[in-house]
């Protein structure tokens, strides 16, 4: 009980600080517009009434935390999950593209890593290109991918998933190159004394040794996939998904909706990263790792 308390107390303290600063910010940013409104309608609210008014605007410059919470609650629990005002619905649209892109990206990353570790030519030629690929801003690439694929008749899930793939293969490739090369010299020498084939060394030594690296890089990759899917929803003016909520919100100055969509995206990210972390721990336990 004390350990639970000591673990959560610092987190809650930081959360409280963020909320407090957020409220102050909301007041400061919304006050000029509110003053303007009051002057035009000739009202003279008391100080407290004025503070309350800055926190209850329909389209605030910076929505107050309780406005965002109310919006998230309303759009998550009070609407049918199939409604296009439901955050569950939009999260699901983005999630499906994220998962597909993540699956592609992980597979591609592993494939590249296996190639780099086993083929000297690939080691020298591929890595600079892979690193260069990540220096290109995804916001510049995304519209081109979407437009080009739309021109050949591919729309919807696949283009978004491809942008996710583009972002997520990189951490997996880099992590798995490191993981597949992680066996110590002694473990490799041992395989040599047995006259083991390359395939045997790969499956019996390199692959099991790389498992912790795989899960660590998949954690980064799934978060990158989510970003990729959201970015992929922006240039199309997509009708659904967290990205489209962000875009619509900014078109119509629905700042509360923007923040609600951001929260939805964060929640999805936390859930995905936690699932990978849990899968990693279970896998390592099944592989006999010493309990931490």
């Amino acid at each position: 009980m004390t350990s639970l308390h000591s673990r959560f107390a610092p987190v809650l303290a930081v959360l409280a600080a963020i909320v407090a600063i957020w409220y102050l910010g909301a007041y400061a940013l919304n006050a000029p517009f509110q003053r303007d409104l009051d002057r035009r309608s000739g009202e003279t609210p008391t100080a407290w009434e004025f503070v309350v008014r800055t926190m209850t605007q329909a389209k605030p410059t910076l929505p107050a935390p309780h406005q965002v919470v109310a919006n998230v609650y309303e759009n998550t629990f009070l609407r049918k999950p199939t409604s296009n005002r439901s955050l569950v619905y939009h999260s699901w649209v983005t999630l499906s593209a994220t998962l597909l892109g993540f699956a592609f990206g992980t597979a591609l990353g592993i494939l590249i890593a296996v190639g780099i570790v086993h083929v000297t030519t690939l080691d020298r030629s591929l890595m600079p290109w892979i690193i260069a690929s990540q220096t290109i801003p995804i916001l510049a690439i995304a519209p081109m991918v979407i437009v080009v694929l739309a021109a050949v008749g591919i729309t919807g899930l696949i283009p978004k998933a491809l942008i996710s793939t583009y972002l997520s293969f990189f951490p997996v490739a880099v992590g798995m190159v490191k993981g597949l090369r992680s066996p110590e010299a002694m473990h490799l020498d041992l395989m040599r004394t047995y006259h083991a084939s390359r395939a045997q060394t790969f499956w019996k030594l390199r692959v099991p040794a790389s498992v912790p690296f795989l899960f660590a890089s998949m954690k980064v990759a799934i978060a990158a996939s989510l970003v990729g899917a959201i970015v992929g929803e922006l240039p199309t003016g997509a009708v659904a998904g967290i990205g489209s909520r962000l875009l619509n919100g900014s078109y119509y100055s629905q700042t509360i909706d923007i923040f609600a969509a951001l929260i939805a995206g964060s929640v999805v990210a936390i859930i995905l990263v936690s699932i990978i972390g849990l899968a990693g721990r279970l896998t390592e336990k099944a592989m006999g790792a010493r309990p931490a």
């Binding site: 002694m186 473990h187 020498d189 006259h195 083991a196 045997q200 030594l205 498992v211 006999g288």
Partner: peptide
């Protein structure tokens, strides 16, 4: 060959470690 360190594969049980050369 027996190395300076035991060089057992940590993800294998003792019997699976002994089985390693036999599998190969």
């Amino acid at each position: 060959y027996v190395f300076q360190a035991a060089a057992l594969y940590p993800w294998r049980t003792i019997e699976r470690n002994v089985a390693l050369p036999l599998e190969i």
